[in-house]
Design a protein around this nucleic acid. Structure first.
Length: 218
DNA sequence: ATCCCGAGGG
DNA sequence: CCCTCTGGAT
């Protein structure tokens, strides 16, 4: 007889099937921010705050052509940089953070984006979410799990965490997810969040993991 | 808790 | 009009 897993099962038991079903649904899940190196990914991720990746990808080609390295960003004219990233929102904070972060990368890290959590967190505008993106995708050294707005929402709906603070949600996810899946987990939840488990009107009937979701609507 | 901030969708 | 988008600093 099959002990069918239900939405009422503990998160630690549901995470395996959830990962397997999402892997099957989104075999191409990956970082959606266009980039060619760690610095470009860092800048794109800072720009992605409260902004769609699609919009970030519209401004970064010209941005990366104009500013090819950390020194170029650090020495850029602030007003010109602000204009180039204006459409991503929060453009004053983002321009300031990019320039301060790049100045430190030049002065302290010899122009190379650091590859440890503590060093990344010392950069302006970089907290755990952005640091986890750079470590996981640019350096393939997942030190944590990316918890953005999609991961937060889906973790809560799926009952993988009852917390509200992203750092606490990250710890809950770490506790039930094999480390080798930490990078994929975020990409899978982000893809699913965008295509099915929308913030406004989730498409539960079309969801491949609805039978494992406490929040699923009939 | 509040501020930063544009763009797109409903 | 309102809500949301790969957040972070104060």
């Amino acid at each position: 007889m099959s002990a069918e897993l239900t939405a009422a099962a503990p998160a630690a038991e549901r995470i395996g099937p959830i990962l397997a079903l999402l892997h099957a649904a989104y075999p191409d899940a990956r970082c959606a921010l266009d980039h060619r190196n760690a610095l470009e990914l860092l800048v794109a991720t800072i720009l992605s705050a409260q902004c769609t990746d699609e919009r970030v990808n519209k401004v970064t080609p010209a941005l990366f052509a104009r500013y090819p390295d950390a020194r170029a960003f650090a020495e850029a004219d602030r007003a010109e940089l602000e204009e180039m990233i204006h459409s991503t929102g929060f453009y004053r904070n983002k321009a300031k953070n990019i320039q301060e972060a790049c100045a430190r990368i030049v002065e302290v890290y010899d122009g190379q984006v650091p590859a440890t959590m503590d060093d990344l967190l010392s950069l302006a505008g970089v907290a755990r979410k952005t640091a986890n993106v750079v470590l996981g995708t640019a350096y393939h050294m997942a030190d944590g799990i990316v918890v953005d707005t999609h991961v937060k929402r889906l973790a809560q709906r799926l009952g993988l965490s009852t917390q509200n603070d992203p750092d606490k949600i990250e710890r809950d996810l770490q506790a039930i997810t094999p480390r080798e899946e930490w990078i994929d987990l975020s990409h899978l939840l982000i893809f699913h969040g965008r295509r099915v488990c929308d913030a406004r009107k989730p498409n539960c009937p079309g969801c491949v993991i609805r039978h494992l979701c406490p929040a699923a609507q009939a």
